[in-house]
């Protein structure tokens, strides 16, 4: 079987930018890798909110589109 090779890397789009990640990964492990663990932020995966309580159990799949946002100054 050769499918394991394709499962071991994940091609994601994070905040509009392409990014390849070693799999398996969860939302929590991704945030950790990005140095964002524990920060006040919100995550959307393929158009759906991933609640903070589910970051650790939400696995990422190849092709996922993620938005990671914070509050900034604005009028």
């Amino acid at each position: 079987m050769t499918t394991t090779a394709s499962i071991s890397t994940l091609s994601l789009t994070i905040n509009g930018e392409a990014r390849v990640l070693a799999g398996p990964a969860t939302v929590a492990s991704l945030l950790d890798e990005m140095g964002l663990a524990g920060k006040r932020l919100a995550v959307e995966r393929n158009g759906e909110i991933v609640p903070r309580g589910l970051h650790a159990t939400t696995g990422l799949a190849d092709g996922d589109r993620l938005e990671i946002v914070v509050a900034v100054g604005g009028g």
Binding site: I14, N15, E17, G35, L36, K39, R40
Partner: peptide, 20 residues
């Protein structure tokens, strides 16, 4: 107070102070 919602800057130092 109004605030805007924006993408995190990938690659930015995560420890920069925040509006919050």
């Amino acid at each position: 107070v109004t605030v805007a919602i924006r993408r995190t800057n990938i690659g930015q130092d995560p420890n920069t102070p925040s509006l919050l």
